[in-house]
């Protein structure tokens, strides 16, 4: 399957669009009609459902080229979005190897990796990149290994060091985040960087999640879905630029909510890295306008019920409390009260 890459933007005129194919394969995050935090982990890897975003290990879709362009714009304005503490360079090489290898194996028509000992040759056709370099020799790449490869991979990446029975946010490339700051959180442990999340700590979520993550072995990655709401298809909803994008949150009306309000889903995956024993934590962001989402009747019914019944605290934390009544009114017209089938995929 060849992918046609969209020429689109995630800022200013927001020309981002999902094709019919992209809508059908959207990772709808709710497997039932209500939502509460959970450690909703499942195995990730090759052999996921054909055509879905789970089919390949690092999904490449029609937004790839445009997302990488948007990342470059964000980094040019704020280099602190990509940081790696000094002890994390080996983990950066681990991550580079993982992504190059997976992309080359899963998308041989788009990416190629030729290895002759430590002399590597990388070809990225969609971005027009060809690079010969020496593995583990940083002087042979134009920038650090983590930055180099994550400028060519969709989604944010956190690279977590593991020590003292904890995980430490010690490196990352973060330009499409749901309102958290790598620059502020870098160096924090698992409990510290999750500190602002309401309710989950008292539910014991973080203790259980950490226990699970510490035990992830090589070759057995896991994944989970997380979600929020975003006004306009904006990737850079960073706290750094909140004063710039914040006003857009107040532009939702009953007339434009279908087109301007997006469901934002994170496909989070977790990979043990072989040399550093660090944990790679890609956070891939998918966006869908409500008016596109409701073309799948099951999703329309279910999203209405989830948003309507969500505890206020969660709507507040996820930042859409102010627009919730308009969103519920809009979705209600697509909910005929019929039962929905289990699982996240469309019925037909």
């Amino acid at each position: 399957m060849t992918i046609r890459f969209n020429d689109e933007t995630f800022r200013d005129d927001y020309s981002f669009r999902n094709s019919a194919t992209a809508i059908r394969r959207f990772p709808f995050p709710f497997d039932k009609d209500d939502y509460m935090y959970s450690v909703n982990m499942e195995p990730h890897g090759t052999g996921g459902r054909a055509g879905s975003v789970f089919e390949k290990r690092f999904d490449v879709d029609e937004h790839y080229v445009a997302e990488m362009r948007d990342r470059a714009i964000t980094l040019a304005g704020d280099p602190l979005r990509c940081q790696s503490l000094p002890h994390m360079e080996l983990a950066g090489w681990d991550l580079l190897e993982l992504i190059m290898q997976c992309k080359a194996e899963d998308y041989p028509d788009l990416f190629q990796l030729h290895r002759d000992g430590d002399r590597w040759h990388w070809i990225n056709r969609p971005l027009g990149i060809e690079q010969r370099f020496t593995f583990l020799d940083p002087t042979t790449l134009p920038c650090g290994p983590m930055e180099y490869i994550t400028r060519q991979a969709q989604g944010d990446f956190a690279v977590l060091d593991q020590r003292e029975n904890n995980l430490w946010m010690d490196a990352g490339m973060v330009t499409s985040q749901a309102d958290w700051s790598l620059d502020f959180d870098i160096g924090m442990n698992f409990f510290e960087w999750h500190a602002p999340v309401p309710k989950a700590a008292e539910m014991g979520i973080f203790q259980r999640a950490l226990k699970f993550l510490l035990a992830i072995p090589q070759g057995a990655p896991s994944r989970r879905l997380n979600w929020t709401m975003t006004v306009n298809p904006r990737l850079d909803t960073s706290p750094e630029n909140y004063h710039l994008w914040g006003p857009e949150k107040r532009t939702i009306t009953p007339e434009n909510v279908g087109a301007k309000q997006y469901l934002r889903v994170e496909l989070q995956s977790f990979w043990r890295l072989p040399r550093s024993n660090a944990l790679a934590f890609p956070i891939r962001c998918y966006l869908i306008a409500l008016e596109d989402l409701v073309t799948v009747p099951k999703w329309a019914r279910r999203l209405h019920r989830v948003i309507r019944d969500l505890p206020d605290e969660l709507a507040e934390y996820k930042g859409f409390a102010v627009n919730r009544p308009i969103i519920i009114d809009y979705l209600a017209q697509f909910d005929d009260g019929k039962p929905t089938s289990p699982g996240i995929f469309p019925d037909d």
């Binding site: 870098i186 924090m188 706290p239 909140y242 004063h243 949150k249 107040r250 102010v322």
Partner: peptide
Amino acid sequence: RRIGAFQGVCVDAE
């Protein structure tokens, strides 16, 4: 702890 500071966020961004 790395910065030794609390976080300040624009209160009237929206």
